[in-house]
Amino acid sequence: MKILRMIGRGIRDAIKSVFRNFSLSLASISCITITLIIVAISIILSYNVTNFTKEIEKDLTIVVFVNNDATEEDIQNINLELKKIENIVQKETIYKSKADVKKEMQKESEIFNSVMEEWNNESNPLKDTFQIKVKNVEKIKDTAKKIEKIDKISVVRYGEGMVDKLISAFSSIQKVTYGAVIALILVTIFLIINTIKLTIYSRKREISIMRLVGASNFTIKIPFIIEGIILGLLGSIVPVLIVIFGYPYLYRVMNGYVFTPLVTLITPTPFIYTIVAITIIIGIIVGMIGSSSAVRKYLKV
């Protein structure tokens, strides 16, 4: 009961203090706002990069062409050999005979359809194929080399260079964004500590009187911590609005992808709500840490 009463008074005092020291509060709030905007953008970027990488990895396939002179037995043999390779996702290995490939290509375009119409099983220049997915994309080169050693196989293709580069580029973009987010959060905490120190400095007298009349350190801290939370919440309003309205707008304007349909954006809902929640939580935590570490100095009188 006593604790609840103290917290109730803490909330009242915190709200009063936010409005009484409005210009200083505004400084803290705008400081939190700016950083949270950047943090939210970085988080959106980082999530999207993870998303494209996953999407591209999902689409990445090794195509194994079987030589034309291969018999049924050879094909069985190839299949067995493939099962021995660790990095292959066995469930997703698809065998397509040249007739299947032909049918697929005919469906894709009118021109192919008319040309391929004339091919029979003998004259079909296409080859039987295995389509293979790998578990770990970074080891795709080794896996391809292992597959090449199997008999009766002509070409192994996995879109080599381009894919490798894309994936390594994405992973470095991601590392940079993570680094930027962490650095920004630290800088914000530091700025908040300093801004709240100013608010607290103007209330040094009040804190020393509280100590003199017998308030415990915990009681003195409550209103300041709540004030930090309120500043964090107020500071997250604009970033939250930007995320809620900005991201879906961007998504619509860009038709859901960046430059090529290969690089897709994450669909706005429920993604934006996750980002909003993260932004608000960061705002609150930053405000709390800032205010409670700023007040500590004044509790030694």
């Binding site: 008074r9 009484r20 007298r205 009040e206 020393s208 009187i209 509280m210 003199l212 009349v213 017998g214 308030a215 009681t219 003195i220």
Partner: peptide, 19 residues
């Protein structure tokens, strides 16, 4: 050592509120 932003009543009540 009174708090200038509080009234007489609030200044005295302050000592009880904080405990």
């Amino acid at each position: 050592r009174l708090l200038p932003k509080l009234t007489v009543y609030e200044n005295v009540a302050f000592a009880m509120e904080v405990i």
